[in-house]
Design a protein around this nucleic acid. Structure first.
Length: 618
RNA sequence: GCCUUAGUGGCUCAGCCGGUAGAGCGAUACCUUGGUAAGGUAUAGGCCGGGGGUUCGAAUCCCCCCUAAGGCUCCA
């Protein structure tokens, strides 16, 4: 239980409208006013349900103590869900709050309780003396730990033990402080994870790039952290989506599409949603309390729980690209493509019969995540996290999984399971400022099978709850683009910044010198276009120098100038961005070079007018 | 969400101890028909983020809000 104690000159409240979990109240309780009151804002948490009596007792003790010290004439219990990210069920909460009221009523100070489950307006005027603002964590066991000044924000949820970190290197667990890093990126990741990252106070370069290259931009008329995507950005998103789709379906996963919002009246949904605390969008739709999904788990689990699964089906993967997932990240945390409130995440859920099968699938997914790093040409550093129990039971497998990375990895051992997973692997790219961008992830979920009542039938016709792997083989699409842009910014000193050829919006830019060359240029463009190459023609009446410069600014991978010489001969002079060289080749040779380099990668045609003179300047 | 800083044509910014706006790029038009990273001339384009206040008068001073950047915190 979390409580916030405010010693106030006065408190006024007025009920406005009911929520679904509202308690029934008499007319007189619909508003209230108290002078010199100790207002106890209270959030009942899940763990209070275990031993509610002891929790009530400890809370009452604490409240009486404070009320005595500040000489309050009234005590008002005010239900306040926002203090906790792990709320108890409404019914238990109502009971606990009533019990607190009853217990306090035995004391001298008059006690009141504000109705539960109503939207209320309220006015509280804090006295402002040193003891007038206090917060406490109440548990069933200990006497509450004193946190004298609520505003200091030092509310460490009495986390019993901290995680231990090691560098896993060829089977050995080494102290991260003493390890000699061959790899700068790993060092940066470790520094960041252990909270010693130093910041330079700069803006991450991808933010400027995403706007400058007309990929995406902020949309001030939406909520913070929701972007608008221009055609080039949209193209890259679509190509990445195509890429992941093929990647996972080639490995047998089945694509589905599920709703983006869910009814909190469903217990499994509610409990899973509450794992995310206050960081979610809530909305009311008619009479329902709804939440916007923060991942595809909700839809996937509902599909799976309504499916009839047998051991013969397993392992089985359900895939969805969540356009969009919603997370109500704190304002100050939202930045560029790195951290958004609305983002797109490839989300694969794999149902596994047992731990053995899930470990086997996990290995396949490690291979898949590694492959995305290669295909996207992004370096990942890896963090393997496991609970102490998991570590103990699967020490050999941990070694095996870490060894698959082929370089040292950071290993975090958590004393207890805090979330639904017992083991996870996170792949992070390192940005321009040396901070990790968490991209692919694999998790072993041991809770959701039961919570969502997902079952399968074993060969003996017994029902079991499966283990479920969560995997995002690339991480969010936005973060992939973020990593690519950050990487290009990092390399800018050594070579011109660019995207991988298969993602480059303009693969070939053709520049006719004079008007009489435009027709030839267009014909050439059509030939390239028919060979599945994204090509455009800068037909604007500008100088060649200027058009070359613009092509560079747009990161065109290859640039061809067309003049009288090209009209006569078969050879083209091709400017290759990657090397900065001018190469003479025929058209077929250019097609071959591009096809070779983009082999196996998805293709989509240019979603813009082929001539620059027709193009909108976003 | 908290602390700090910022918001002026599409973009980058100047003006800011009060007297109602300026440049470069971009855009448009015309001239130039050009050979590898900015050709020339002209024109248009601004409720100076929004709202309130002080003042004869506010882009400029004060308050509130919105948005952004950095830091804190956090990312299942």
């Amino acid at each position: 239980m979390r409580i916030l104690l405010i010693h106030s000159d006065h408190l006024k409240y007025q009920t406005k409208s009911k929520t679904r979990i509202a308690e029934k109240i008499d007319e007189e309780k619909k508003k209230g006013e108290y002078e010199n009151a100790l207002v106890v804002f209270t959030a009942v948490e899940k763990e209070d349900e275990k031993d509610s009596e002891a929790t009530v007792e400890n809370a009452v003790k604490e409240i009486v103590d404070v009320a005595g010290k500040v000489k309050a004439e009234n005590i008002v219990i005010y239900p306040y869900a926002h203090l906790s990210s792990s709320l108890g069920s409404p019914n238990v909460a109502k009971e606990i709050l009533s019990n607190m009221e009853a217990k306090l009523a035995e004391m001298e100070t008059p006690v009141s309780r504000v109705p539960f489950g109503w939207y209320k307006s309220f006015e509280v005027s804090c006295k402002g003396h040193p003891l007038s603002e206090l917060s406490r964590s109440i548990t069933s066991e200990s006497t509450p730990s004193a946190e004298e000044k609520g505003e200091e924000g030092e509310d460490e949820d009495s986390e019993a033990e901290e995680s231990q970190f090691y560098i896993w290197n060829e089977g050995e667990l080494l102290d991260p402080d003493e390890f000699s890093y061959q790899n700068e990126d790993l060092k940066k990741l470790v520094d960041y994870e252990l909270g010693r990252g130093e910041s330079t106070g700069e803006e991450p370069p991808h933010v400027k790039l995403m706007r400058e290259k007309k990929l995406a931009d902020y949309e001030p008329s939406a909520d913070i952290g929701h972007l608008r995507w221009y055609p080039k950005g949209r193209l890259i998103r679509d190509l990445l989506a195509d890429y992941v789709y093929t990647l996972v379906t080639d490995r047998g996963a089945m694509p589905v599409e599920t709703p983006i919002m869910y009814d909190l009246a469903d217990d499994a949904i509610r409990v899973h949603a509450e794992k995310f605390g206050e960081r979610q969008y809530r909305m009311s739709g008619g009479k329902k309390d709804l939440m916007l999904r923060y991942a595809c788990c909700f839809g996937a689990f509902r599909v799976l729980s309504d499916s009839f699964l047998t051991w013969k089906n397993l392992p089985v993967g359900i895939y969805e690209l969540s356009t969009y997932s919603f997370r109500l990240e704190k304002k100050g945390e939202v930045v560029g493509l790195k951290r958004l409130r609305g983002f797109t995440m490839p989300d694969l859920h794999t149902v596994c019969a047992d731990m053995e099968q899930s470990l086997h699938e996990f290995e396949d997914q490690i291979e898949m995540c590694k492959k995305t790093g290669e295909d996207l040409d992004v370096n990942y550093e890896v963090i393997l996290r496991a609970t102490a129990d998991f570590m103990e039971e699967n020490r050999e497998w941990i070694d095996h999984a870490a060894a698959m990375i082929g370089k040292p990895v950071l290993l975090e051992i958590l004393p207890e399971r805090k979330h639904y997973w017992t083991c996870k692997m996170d792949f992070a790219a390192i940005d321009y400022l040396g901070r990790p961008i968490e991209n692919p992830t694999i998790q072993i979920d041991v809770e959701s099978g039961e919570r969502f009542d997902i079952t399968y039938i074993d060969p003996e016709e017994q029902e079991h709850h499966p283990i479920i792997l969560h995997c995002s083989p690339t991480g969010s699409i936005e973060r992939v683009i973020c990593s690519l842009l950050e990487k290009s910014a990092l390399e800018m000193k050594e070579k011109p910044p660019m995207l991988p050829l298969w993602l480059s919006p303009t693969q070939v830019r053709i520049i006719p010198i004079a008007e009489r060359h435009i027709e030839f240029a267009r014909n050439l463009a059509e030939e390239l276009r028919d060979a599945h190459i994204r090509v455009d023609v800068d037909d604007r009446p500008e100088t060649v120098g200027k058009k070359i410069r613009n092509a560079g600014g747009e990161w065109a991978s290859f640039v061809i100038v067309i003049g009288d010489r090209e009209l006569e001969g078969d050879e083209l002079t091709v400017n290759v961005r990657e090397t900065g060289q001018k190469v003479s080749m025929g058209i077929q040779e250019l097609i071959d070079v591009i096809n070779l380099e983009t082999k196996g990668m998805p293709f989509r045609p240019l979603p813009l007018p082929i001539t620059l003179s027709k193009r909108v300047n976003f």
